[in-house]
Amino acid sequence: MTKAVPLPVDPRGPLPARQGFATFDEPASRFLVDAEGNPDFPAIQQTEEFKLLRRRVVRFVFPMTALFLVWYMTYVLLSAYAKDFMSQRVFGVVNVGLVLGLLQFVSTVLIMLGYSRYAARALDPQVDVVRELAGADEEQR
């Protein structure tokens, strides 16, 4: 009943041969892998490609988290300690507190969409670049 999705593949499987130079005597050492063919994590961590990916992740998620937490706590603190302000009517019997509360829904959706876009444009392609350093995903291309 579940839709077919790619099953996990073992990256330790045989590395694909490239035309010309990959032989048994010469393992695919152009990738950042150790003797058993596992990714060489400390080496990957030091590459510019990975550092760029990490910077892009950190630069988005932490400021954005700080932003929505501050905005949410502002709303909570106003509700608790600025009752008169929050009780002002905006239209009909709808007051400032309710409008700000509904804006929390709006901001959540906006941040979610923003992150999805950012991840698809700036993170996922860079993930693919880093993965190629270790020769992952070759079989699927």
Binding site: D10, P11, N38, F41, F50, R54, V57, V127, V130, R131
Partner: peptide, 23 residues
């Protein structure tokens, strides 16, 4: 452990070594 930390950080951000295809 710096090696383990490197493995975890790279794996968390890229999925390398997790055995999971990203596509």
């Amino acid at each position: 452990d710096p090696d383990k930390q490197a493995e975890m950080e790279v794996r968390a951000l890229t999925g390398l070594g997790s055995g999971l295809a990203q596509h």
